[in-house]
Amino acid sequence: MAFLELDHVSLGFGPPNDRTEVLKDVNLQVQENEFVAIIGFSGSGKSTLVSLLAGLQQPEKGCVRMHGQPVTEPGPERGIMFQNYSLLPWLSVHGNIELAVKQVFPRYSRAERKAHVERYIEMVNLTPAADKKPSELSGGMRQRVSLARTLAMQPEVILLDEPLSALDALTRANLQDEIVRIWGEDRRTVVMITNDVDEALLMADRVVPLTMGPEATLADAFTIDLPRPRDRTLSNSDPDFKHLRNRITQYLIGLNEEAKALRVDERKEMPDVRPVDFYATRRTSFWERLRNNDTDAA
């Protein structure tokens, strides 16, 4: 029995006479301590998939199971790290993590809780920024806080929903290494959603492509048996790496073309309208301009 599984899961939206199936007949088995990457184009239903795994959404057909038990609601045993950080802006780094720790480990004493929170802040190298508010942090730092919060809940499964897609390339590479390093420490089960082939190859044990939506489903998995730790500088020279990358990329391009071919018949005539650009006419207030000037000057 798989640790976490999707069993013939389907989900759609819209009224019955005009249904759009987002996911159709999706099957996935994740083993304990496995790092699975699900890769797909944007709009293919990746985020919906992760919502289903987390229990934030319920499937219409089929079943999501963990330890063989159906998942009916979200919970801290499946820690999810959102694409856009989802930090509470009125709490400091420490406060954000503490909120989660307080809820998941209600029996901790004050000192134990503090130690726990600080351990995870340390783990993501944010100790100097522990008292800062999210607005005072860079994107990468915010995502690290989000990671620390997820890890601090000590979930059995970590679900990463495109955690790095909003970051610049350098920060992204850093965080990739960091996530792999932390994962390597206690090898929890991880399901990561991504749209980056290199990222999937560097981090995962298994890469599962999601076909183009609508009616997306999971294709056959590619097993990545590259030795760890994987060095990103090898990605341009290592023949195994290059081979795998080519195969996955080719597969994805194939999917894309297939989807295009399928879509030709259904192409709808678009109305000839131009979107209104509200921002073009929006006047900046006097104080706003002033503030902008100041930041420019600084």
């Binding site: 987390a54 934030l56 609601e73 979200p74 919970g75 801290p76 499946r78 820690g79 999810i80 959102f82 989802s86 509470l88 909120l99 989660a100 809820q103 998941v104 809940m153």
Partner: peptide, 8 residues
């Protein structure tokens, strides 16, 4: 969603 995951 954060609140739901934490089961607040």
């Amino acid at each position: 969603n954060v609140a739901r995951v934490l089961r607040l």
